Computed example of a mutant assay.
Amino acid sequence: MDLVLKNVKKKDFPVLKSLAKSLGFEIVEEEKPYNPEFVKEILEAEQSIKDGKGIKMTLDELRELCK
């Protein structure tokens, strides 16, 4: 059986890890990185805004787009 703990505070993690180890549980830590293509797209978009390629919109113009 697998058990997933979410929203564990950093200060509580060593205690939980120690408890699991003392009970003989296997501890597997997984990092799920962002999709590299997604990261590239976001970084390119930020750079284009810094380069002045973005557009400015009023809140009313944005609302009109979202209709």
Rank of each mutant, 00 (worst) to 15 (best):
K50I: 07
S18H: 06
V8T: 10
V39R: 11
P14Y: 02
D12R: 04
I55V: 14
E37C: 10
F13H: 06
E37D: 15
C66Y: 12
S48L: 10
I55N: 11
P36L: 01
K50C: 04
K32W: 01
I27W: 09
K53R: 03
G54R: 09
L43S: 02
K32S: 06
K50N: 03
E31Q: 02
D2Y: 14
V28R: 14
E61V: 04
S48A: 10
K21A: 04
E61N: 00
V39A: 06
G52D: 05
K6Y: 13
L59A: 14
V15Q: 06
N7L: 14
Q47K: 15
L19Y: 12
E26D: 11
K40I: 03
L65F: 02
E26S: 11
I42P: 06
K56A: 10
K21Y: 01
P14H: 04
A45N: 13
V4I: 15
I55D: 10
E26Q: 12
K10N: 13
I27G: 04
L3S: 01
V39H: 09
Y34C: 12
E46S: 11
C66V: 11
E46M: 15
F13Q: 05
D51C: 05
V15L: 06
A20F: 06
N7K: 13
V28C: 12
E64N: 08
F25Y: 15
S18Q: 10
V8R: 08
L5W: 06
L65K: 03
E29Y: 05
L65C: 00
D51T: 05
L65M: 01
G24L: 03
K40Q: 09
E64D: 08
L5Y: 03
E37N: 14
S18C: 01
L43E: 06
K50M: 07
E29N: 10
E44C: 10
S48G: 06
N7H: 12
D2F: 14
P14G: 01
E30G: 07
P33E: 04
L62H: 12
D12A: 03
K9D: 02
P36E: 09
